[in-house]
C-alpha cells in the first residue's frame, strides 16, 4: 500500500458557473465506474450526470432526459458514435453526445454540458 495519496483522493469537480471560476466538488474519482454514470445534485438544485469512458476521460451533462422529464441520463449506457462518446437515455433510448450535449436522434434537442475536471 504505497500508492501516492493524491492519486487515491482525486476529487471530481464540476464548474457550476460559467462566468466565475467556481468549481464544485462532487465525489472521489473511484466512485465512477468506466462505462457508466452517476448523478450529482448541484447547489442550485440542478442535476448533473457524470461519466467516465474506458480511456478515463470525464464528461458531465444535465441529468434530465428532455424527452420524458425524468432525471435519468446518468443511468444510461455510454458508447461511441464516429469516435465521439454518447449516452443513450435508459427510457426511450435517444442518444446524447457527451461533449456537446447534442441529441443524435433529434437535431432540435440539446442538453446542457458542464466542465469537469479532477483535482
Amino acid at each position: 500500500m504505497t500508492l501516492a495519496p493524491e492519486t487515491t483522493t482525486l476529487k471530481v469537480q464540476l464548474r457550476v458557473d460559467d462566468a466565475a471560476d467556481d468549481w464544485f466538488p462532487v465525489c472521489d474519482i473511484s466512485a465512477l465506474m468506466p462505462g457508466r454514470g452517476v448523478a450529482a445534485l448541484l447547489p442550485d438544485g440542478r442535476q448533473a450526470a457524470l461519466f467516465q469512458d474506458r480511456a478515463g476521460r470525464l464528461y458531465a451533462i444535465d441529468n434530465r432526459d428532455p424527452f420524458t422529464g425524468a432525471a435519468v441520463l446518468s443511468r444510461g449506457l455510454i458508447g461511441s458514435h464516429q469516435g465521439r462518446p454518447f449516452v443513450a437515455s435508459p427510457l426511450l433510448k435517444q442518444r446524447f453526445e457527451l461533449e456537446s450535449g447534442r441529441c443524435l436522434d433529434d437535431d432540435a434537442v440539446t442538453v446542457a454540458t458542464y466542465e469537469i475536471r479532477t483535482a
Binding site: 462505462g35 469512458d53 474506458r54 444510461g76 449506457l77 455510454i78 458508447g79 461511441s80 458514435h81 469516435g83 462518446p85 443513450a88 433510448k93 442518444r95
Partner: peptide, 10 residues
Amino acid sequence: GGDGCEICKP
C-alpha cells in the same frame, strides 16, 4: 479500443 455502444454491450 473504443467504448462500444448501447446495442452490443448488453
